[in-house]
Design a protein around this nucleic acid. Structure first.
Lengths: 335, 335
DNA sequence: AAAAACTTTGCAACCGGTTGCAAAGAAATT
DNA sequence: AATTTCTTTGCAACCGGTTGCAAAGTTTTT
């Protein structure tokens, strides 16, 4: 069916090596040969088979992209950026939907079987051990949105969740809130744990009372709405720090349903700054994660790993910032 | 680095063929040999290389998934369903982000070079010719969300957009609206064109006046909000049929901004039924596309094509339905 | 017990490329 | 013009599997 090296070589009247060399950059071919080959290739419509090349070179130009959160709109950006960044470098994403896959072990096996050049694990809900499994199997791996640990043994690109939690506490304190709540994402997510720790520690330092701590079951509107019922039990709570914008929007609607107005009766601080956070109906004040930077950096790093597998593990953290909209009281005038 | 057939064969004391056969189903191996091989494979941690297998069998088990709409939350479901459906059948999605790729021609080349077994083009904004290019290159292709044409020469799975447009007109008419508007998606999308045609034709038949027809530049909240300004110029318009929920939400906020209340002053009918359509802040009445059915069917069809490339082109259309929420006046009581 | 029918196995060629090596050819040096 | 140096080229082996074929081994039939 498809045109092969051999046919091109015959038509051009050269050896198969010559054809191969005109299609691999950096190989030595004379201008005359190259021309003959290119002409033959064009008339035959030849393009080298990447599968065959992969087998010979032991490089597939495939990057595994493992995700387990296909519900959150934040991931659309992630997919968009990842795929376009990879494409710019002539790499292809081999997408793995972890939620559907039985075991993490299988995923590792699978990507190994496809001989992907590297893997990007893009999730904050899996333990570091998952990413390490790839490393053990000899596959370069980046844990994007992963847990930041000082004694890292795997590349991590993301944010300092503990610091972001602290930032949330400070944001509340600056605006004069005294009694607040934490409505986190899934409790098992490392991002949730770290943010929660930073938030509670800093709240204590600043004399804020964290009157309620609860967690949404997943990163959805509904889970946020449901979990908010817990928070509403305590009428003293003046503001809620949510683990995700989607959860936050659900929580806001639950509050409104209960007749509380935002931000007068109760304030909300989200996380991620998804597109919808800017919509009039929510106008969510939220902590923005620099997704673009994180992803560009992850891709850069995975490419670096492929070229030099022995790089020692690196942590790359990017700063987050509060995006001011209308779901928290304003900062008091600074005299 | 990786363990190969040969090493397993040596350890097990059999030929390479024997090892290969224990790992390809349907091949004849005695129980004794299989056992020896499996034991050896386990101790060595052997898994067959899918790249090498692909080269030999001329099957990669890769399915190209081409999309060009990474902005719309509706596509999260699409990705989730596609990936999990493919995974169930031991196939892998090779994701192509068309927006970032220079030319469609290149995409075809690229997927051909990777020898994907089939391609699913999931977009309503590209012409049929794009899907046909794959077919011409000898790659089985399904145009999911594609344009339904009676004289098809490519597999199409989706909905009857013309009929959905008609359904929208009927929905308005039943509720007593007389003067309405169409706020479509991008004008170049075939889905927009077909829905628009069905809507306008049926509106005319039912005696509805379509007082304004305009189009959003893309499938975003902002584009909907901007385009709605046009519609608001005409104060007689009682209801708007939007080409997409996201566009519709933007349009609703523009209307509210202009002091119109929904559904009292103006009604909205969306399209797609994305998760957010059910949120309290919008409570959007919308036409639901059965995404799950469409995708399951697409995957099934692409698998079928791989096994039998000569199947003649098939059109598979699924029914849509109006999901009643709060953005249109209710149906009048039937006496 | 021999013949016939069926299974299992290894050999060797093949899938479509890449690449080290040595020979051939071209250019530069003396 | 002969020698040295550098470039280009083809040969052949290799990447890690699959598979048609014939020989060897089993089982069934007579």
């Amino acid at each position: 069916m498809a045109v092969t090296l051999k046919e091109v070589a015959e038509l051009a009247g050269v050896s198969r090596s010559a054809v191969s060399r005109t299609f691999t950059d950096g190989a030595s071919v004379s201008a005359r040969t190259r021309e003959k080959v290119e002409k033959a290739a064009k008339t035959l419509g030849y393009k080298p088979s990447l599968i065959a090349r992969s087998l010979a070179t032991n490089r597939t130009k495939l990057i595994g992209l493992v995700a387990n959160n296909f519900q959150n709109p934040a991931f659309l950006d992630v997919f968009d950026l990842f795929t376009s960044e990879l494409q710019k470098r002539e790499l292809r994403p081999l997408l793995v939907n972890l939620s559907a896959e039985t075991s993490p072990k299988k995923v590792v096996e699978l990507l190994r079987q496809y001989s992907v050049d590297g893997v990007i694990v893009a999730t904050s809900t899996l333990p570091t051990s998952f990413a390490i499994a790839f490393q053990t199997a000899g596959i370069p791996v980046i844990h994007t949105f992963g847990k930041f640990q000082a004694n890292a043994n795997v590349h991590v690109v993301g944010i300092d969740n503990d610091y972001c939690g602290a930032m949330a506490a400070r944001t509340f304190s600056e605006r004069g809130y005294r009694t607040v709540a934490l409505l986190g994402g899934p409790e098992t997510a490392t991002s949730t744990q770290d943010r929660s720790a930073g938030f509670q520690r800093t709240a204590a330092e600043l004399g804020l009372s964290v009157a309620k701590v609860c967690f949404a079951e997943n990163y959805t509107y509904k889970a946020g709405r449901d979990a908010m019922r817990n928070v509403l039990e305590n009428p003293d709570i003046e503001a809620v720090f949510c683990g995700d914008d989607l959860i936050c929007m659900g929580a806001m609607d639950a509050a409104r349903d209960a007749g509380r107005s935002i931000p007068e009766d109760i304030g909300f601080l989200g996380f991620n700054d998804i597109g919808m956070a800017g919509w009039d109906a929510y106008a969510l004040t939220t902590i923005r994660q620099p997704i673009r930077d994180i992803i560009m950096s992850s891709v850069e790093l995975v490419v670096g790993m492929v070229n030099n597998p022995d790089r020692s593990p690196e942590i790359r953290l990017f700063p987050c910032s509060v995006i001011e909209r209308g779901s928290l009281r304003p900062l008091p005038e600074t005299a």
